[in-house]
Design a protein around this nucleic acid. Sequence first.
DNA 1: TCTGGGGTCCTGTGCCGC
DNA 2: TCTGGCGGCACAGGACCC
Length: 417
Amino acid sequence: MFALIDCNNFYVSCERVFNPSLNGKPVVVLSNNDGCAISRSDEAKKLGVPMGAPVFKYKSIINQHNVVVLSSNYPLYADMSHRVMTTISKFIPDIEIYSIDEAFLKFEGYENYDLFSYASKMRNTILKWTGIPTSVGIAPTKSLAKISNKIARKFPSQTKHVYILDTDYKRSKALNYFPLNDIWGIGRRLSKRLQNIGCKNASDFVNLPEQWVKSNLSIVELKIQQELKGISNLDLDSLKIKKSIATTRSFEKPVSNLSKLKERVSTFSLSCAEKLRRQNSLCNIMIVFIRSNYFRKDLKQHSCSRVVTLPYPTNSSFVLNNYALKAVENMFQDKIYYKKAGVIVTSLVPNNSYQLGIFENEDYRHKSLMKTMDYINSKYGEKIKLANQDLKRKWKMKQEFLSPCYTTRMDDIIKIK
DNA sequence: TCTGGGGTCCTGTGCCGC
DNA sequence: TCTGGCGGCACAGGACCC
């Protein structure tokens, strides 16, 4: 059996742990630049603030009902997530951390356990130790565990936040209940396509001939279909090695000036280099993109990307920065208001075993220089920069409603008098 | 005025070499 | 020497997830 454990309204719940006055009130947490609502309390959901809604469109609801609006505080959420995951692994060793607020678990050798009471004990412990409420769905496959988790969340008074989908009767009842786009892996586009051929709910999808699914959709949908039938196709993915690393941002204000754009992209490339070094990887390929604001139909649009195949695998800030800047110069067009840019590194290889080039290899001094740079920056804050970065950095992400970093910054720790 | 970021995977297209 | 078919590859773009 598999279980999916999911933190309820995770970002809002993290905020509530340290600020209990938010309990019972409608609360939303916003995305970067305070753009969209990406986490909502039950009260805010009831008021009709949708997931991912641009917050300026819902100002009247927010003002009318005194909805508390917060900027996202990632250091806090990352630390709380770590606490929750550590607590879970004390109960079950087979764990796949699927996202910041979700984990899949595998119950192997738990045949003699009462899974309901074991899962309830786990969620009570998490609540007690971290303050974060969770829901647990248990089923024979990962896809069904997802559905089971939805049931646990949707009917809290009946399920007490733990639901076990363990019989054919429960399975077919659940599949008849949930619409297509509630199935893990079936999004907006695909559910529309399936609706057009007469599928109304998950059950209709499961009853489609396998051959048809394979030839008209893809192998991914076929796997989902089998999982929903109760045939396990997806196992725990415990060792997750990243295949790409990205740093991308929307700008608070549009950028139409090449040197300013270069400065931003430079910072993104350095951030990617740092992330690479942190996980002891080198990259072979770097993708740089710049894009105007596609919501502004009245302005001239430009969206462009460059794939840079590097001469040798690297995680050197200097090398990545140089190529990123060349790519921007190459793509930049005058009189365009750029709204977003990013750097993605991919084709990653481990730091300690990679193919050396015949003609060109990295300057051997970079390695120790980077090590020193990372050490100084981690000890004293971002003290060392490259000269082409804006040394008096004026731009800053919009975060008007940021809560303190209660658990990760000494100055922000709550004082008890 | 104001619309996120970080991932994975798949598909279509164009090019190249056999 | 030319041509068509085909597989492999790179790349752009899209769908999906949280």
